[in-house]
Amino acid sequence: MKKLVFVLFLFSAMVNAQVKAPQPSPFGKLEQKVGLTDITVEYSRPSMRGRTIFGDLVPYDKMWRTGANENTKITFSDDVVIKGKKLKKGTYAIFTIPMEENWEVIFYSDVSNWGLPKQWDESKVALKVEANTDSMPFDMETFTIVIDELTNSSAVLNFLWESTVAYLPIEVPTDEMVMESIKTTMKANPTSNDYYAAANYYFEEVKDMKQSLEWINKAIDMQEETPFWMLRRKSLIQAKMGMKKDAIKTAELSLKSAQKAGNDDYVKMNEESIEEWSK
């Protein structure tokens, strides 16, 4: 009986034993918020390993899985615009056709494939766009996807490998979402932070500066002791409106408050602005 138990234990251990070793194309995940939109990329990352990539390992003018192993997937939490074309929110597989001058990028609604689909279904192509390419002055050893050049309403999706980068501009509906949020909140019971956020957005997007100043004043009026960063923003709004004397007075208040708080960054910024606006 003991022998049988030992044999069963040994067999179980052999079945459950697995060799753990690094994958040749490790999994990577990129999460980026652009404005108010979440973009997530999941992909496997092959490396050059001394091989020539484009035009050899990855042939020109043929569809590529854009990575390794399972589909490279991208998820958008909101509808977006890519190179002027609309793409509905959701998750898509990314397939590409690298060419010497540019790439064709395909967003495919079926993400369940290992590599390329066994049978291509054109009805599952949600979007097909052309990506521009540039040569890099160095080699990127491991295939890399990057989202950069971030603004409140846009970003650039980059594919980097070997000495090539292919890139696509992406626009997100930040302005539409923020304006609706401001409209709804202002009809309810806005807080000081709500007024500040609205004023700050109008300032950064160069909208109605008069409205921005009105909101920042309401935000300040609701504070027992106005924070230096809120005064700093008001001074910048006033300066943009051409109210330099008022901007200097507000910046001086922000400066004193920042000194009291021991925030050297805001002390420096206010001193520089006061000097600039005094000329």
Rank of each mutant, 00 (worst) to 15 (best):
N152T: 05
K183E: 06
S44E: 10
V111Y: 02
P22M: 11
K245L: 07
K62M: 00
V165M: 13
D221R: 10
W120H: 13
D121S: 14
A68E: 07
F95V: 11
T72M: 06
L157H: 04
D79A: 14
Y167C: 01
Y43D: 03
M136Y: 02
P169D: 12
R45Q: 07
V81A: 05
L255Q: 05
Q211V: 12
R51D: 01
E276N: 12
L57N: 01
I220N: 01
R51M: 07
T151K: 10
S123N: 09
K29G: 05
S25H: 08
Q259H: 14
S212C: 04
D264C: 08
D221K: 13
N102I: 11
P227Q: 04
N200L: 12
E100Y: 04
S154K: 03
A219C: 09
K279P: 00
N69R: 02
P117R: 13
P117S: 13
N270A: 07
L30H: 08
L168C: 07
E252W: 12
P190G: 10
T191K: 06
M136I: 08
M48N: 03
A155L: 04
G35W: 10
S235Y: 15
S235G: 15
L236D: 15
E275Y: 12
S12P: 01
M63K: 02
W161T: 11
F138Y: 14
G84P: 04
K33H: 08
R233H: 13
Y43P: 00
R233E: 14
T40S: 11
K240H: 11
M269Q: 05
I170G: 00
W120K: 02
K249C: 04
T96C: 00
S47Y: 13
P137K: 10
L160Y: 09
V156R: 10
P98M: 13
W215A: 01
F6H: 08
P26G: 09
K73S: 03
D139H: 11
F143D: 05
L8D: 03
M63Y: 04
F9C: 01
K218W: 12
K249T: 14
M63V: 06
S77F: 05
G115N: 01
L116D: 03
T75I: 13
A199R: 10
N217Q: 11
F143K: 12
S278Y: 10
V80P: 00
L236N: 14
D265K: 10
V80Q: 08
G262V: 15
E272K: 04
T184R: 09
V41G: 00
Y167H: 11
K83A: 10
K88W: 09
L36E: 09
W215N: 03
E162V: 05
W229T: 09
M179H: 13
E252M: 05
S44M: 11
